[in-house]
Simulated assay, not measured.
Amino acid sequence: MRTTLLGAQTSLQSSPTQFVEMLRHGSMSVEWYAPEVVDLQQPHEQDELYVVVRGTGMFRNGNTTHPFGPGDVLFVPAGVEHRFFDFTADFGTWVIFYGTKGSEIQ
């Protein structure tokens, strides 16, 4: 399996949402996410990783808030409230969902 940033950006242009799924295998799914102005996400049922490709801004993960930029990897456990905010117009990130619903066993 393989996907590319260009393929993801092209697919997103024809999507009615701010994200598009690009790969899936078992419990793992990879999406390209590029919100416009406001991040409207709700907590997810699976653990997730964000791999920021472009843009900068702030990220709230539960009770913690910190800046983010290209090259950052952000982990969010299943069910935790999280949000990107004050992000630049060019912001885009890979999102990788994985594991069982309710989070991985530690």
Rank of each mutant, 00 (worst) to 15 (best):
M1L: 12
R2A: 11
L5V: 11
L6T: 14
A8M: 03
A8F: 05
A8Q: 03
S11C: 10
L12W: 00
L12A: 00
Q13A: 13
Q13W: 04
S14L: 09
S14C: 06
S14V: 09
S15G: 06
P16E: 15
P16T: 15
P16D: 15
Q18P: 05
Q18Y: 13
Q18G: 09
E21W: 02
M22T: 01
L23T: 05
R24V: 06
S27Y: 04
V30F: 12
V30W: 08
E31D: 04
E31F: 10
W32K: 05
W32V: 08
Y33V: 03
Y33T: 00
Y33Q: 00
P35V: 08
E36I: 05
E36D: 06
P43H: 07
P43D: 10
H44L: 11
H44F: 12
E45T: 08
E48G: 13
V52Q: 01
V53H: 10
T56V: 13
F59H: 10
F59W: 08
F59E: 02
R60M: 07
N63T: 03
T65R: 01
P67I: 05
F68Y: 13
G69I: 12
P70E: 14
P70T: 10
P70C: 09
D72Y: 10
F75D: 13
V76C: 14
V76W: 14
G79D: 05
V80N: 11
V80C: 13
F85P: 08
F87D: 06
D90M: 05
I96F: 12
F97I: 02
Y98I: 01
T100F: 04
G102T: 11
S103N: 07
E104A: 01
E104W: 01
E104S: 01
Q106V: 08
